[in-house]
Design a protein around this nucleic acid. Sequence first.
RNA 1: GCCGAAAUAGCGCAAUAGGUAGAGCAACUGACUUGUAAUCAGUAGGUUGUGGGUUCGAUUCCUACUUUCGGCACCA
Length: 639
Amino acid sequence: MKIKLMENIKEFEGTISLSDIALSISNSLKKRCVAGMVDGHLKDMDYIVDKDSDVRFITNTDKEAIEILNHSTAHLMAESIKELWGNVVFGVGPAIEEGFYYDFKIDGKMLTEDDFKAIEDKMNEISRRAEHPLRKEMTKSEALSIFNGDRLKTEIINDLPDDEIISAYTQGNYIDLCRGPHIPSTSFIKHFKLLSIAGAYWRGDSKREMLQRIYGISFFEEKDLKDYLVLLEERKARDHRKLGKQMGIFMFDDLVGRGLPMWLPNGFIVRRLLSDYIMDKEIALGYQHVLTPSLGNVELYKTSGHWAHYKDDMFPKMDVDDESYVLRPMNCPHHMVMYKSQLHSYKEFPLKIAEIAADFRYEASGALTGIERTRAFYQNDSHIFAMESQIGDVFKEVVELILDVYNDFGLKDYRMRLSLRDPNDTKKYFGNDELWERSENELRQVLNDLNIDYYEALGEAAFYGPKLDVQVRSAIGHDVTLSTIQLDYQLPERFELTYIDEKGEKARPVVIHRAILGSLDRFVAFLLEETKGVLPLWLAPTQVKVIPVNLGLHKEYSDSIYQLLKKNNLRPQVDYRDEKLGYKIREAQTQKIPYQLVIGDNEVQNNTVTYRKYGEKDQVTVTKEEFVELLKKQVEERK
RNA sequence: GCCGAAAUAGCGCAAUAGGUAGAGCAACUGACUUGUAAUCAGUAGGUUGUGGGUUCGAUUCCUACUUUCGGCACCA
């Protein structure tokens, strides 16, 4: 039997386990091996190779290894919980992007974080026992008898096809249904930590029972674990909720209501600049801005279909006179009606109506997260009316706008998601199969033409059409949508929109919904986290802090600099407090103000300023005029 | 919405085995008049999230509610 190992081919008599193959190379390799890749499939070290194969060993430095380690750590945790509390059923316990979790339910006992110590101690104890996870393959009926009495595992097994070969792993007295592979010994698991405990619905279904879920993470090296815990702290430090409070961007108050952000003066500056920025971009591309009310007759949303789909996610309707109104959750219906108020020609197309519009959604209380997810937010929205033949061009222009904007903000870490209909749940969506297929293919086509990296996600489409979403990861690990483009044949139909085509006949337009900054609120949240609160000069609420060395001697000159900067549309502040110089400098630094000017005798005599840029140590002396030009240039370049 | 945890001064925190709360920073007052990350001293600041209960007495124990946090579910 020939085994191909990296570049070499080794011959073996009869069958042989991966473990023995590793041993035939060196004892130290065997000790480091976590698993093996046999003809592209991950296998335990126990796996018996019985034919000519390609074998690659997975050692603790390979990226697959950390996933296997975490998966095995999940099992180890489950084993520990079982030893400690006995009467427990387990759901699923996979490795995830960062670490692992396991879902379980202990009869008559709810665990809290206070129990982590006991579990970790038990895990360490089992690690020292060096238990060997042993794979056993079986038929479905064998599996059902082994897991008889375990309602959760039984359900999983029952959902598998009848002829499926099912595997389970035994370590010590613990057995778990699992595909594997697993590490050769629990002794590999040394540097781990349980991180949090939370509720999680069984099978992700909110109608079913809630289990407990413990998250944790595991590494091969202690240093990696320490680094990870530091990383978690750093992420917490750039949580927009913390930064937004520190920087005076926004606030919440119970008396106003949960999920209802109030934008403070600093926050307003950022918002206004962002609005102006995006509207300027839009105007350059021929968008026309409009303003429509935040309230609408409920009939409007019945026409659009939002009422049927999202009634429960809207604030309840208000009855006035003989009508009912709702706070709008979306702007499309208003824009549809606006379009309809006039006769349109194909010559106007694509017709782009844009609005930065206030929307209100009755988000589930548990979903509210600072200004990332609120009940009142502002959308950088637009609806583009076009002929079917223009879809490709319009779509392309919007994608390019997104890329342009992201480039301006230096955003590189995002993923394009093509959100498609769930083919198994078509009644959630309006429109027929043929239309959906066509729309989805159109989007796919454009993405391919533009050579854009994207992934497809079933079930993420809007009820009226497929979309392209740009996903980013927030500091606290939420995947959120920043930008979106949505193709819609439904609303034009429901609102009976028409245009006059080349032949002089009435035809139905298509609508493309798009949001670039998405929700302004969420965008600011993301920016704060991206920049760690160090906003680029053009967005910084205070751009320059002027610090006189001596109030008596340098105040007048400081004032003149302040006035000069003001005149040039910059946002300076002078620190007039009677404090020590070092104190004021420290404060300017902790407030992350992009430029601090220290003004003393030298500056007054030479008519100069000495600046220090945030994050740099150098002190640079230039003339007042040079400084103004430097800043204006940076603002213009949006740096 | 569901499961769990938490809520103390403007901010980030401490404390009480049940005896009406402390220091730091910030604020205010005064002294100091300063060249690149915290000058010194003093003053004021709290119905310990809200309501109810147990108790001679509750910030502490119980309970309901509100809000926040961690997840899950949701996200047009």
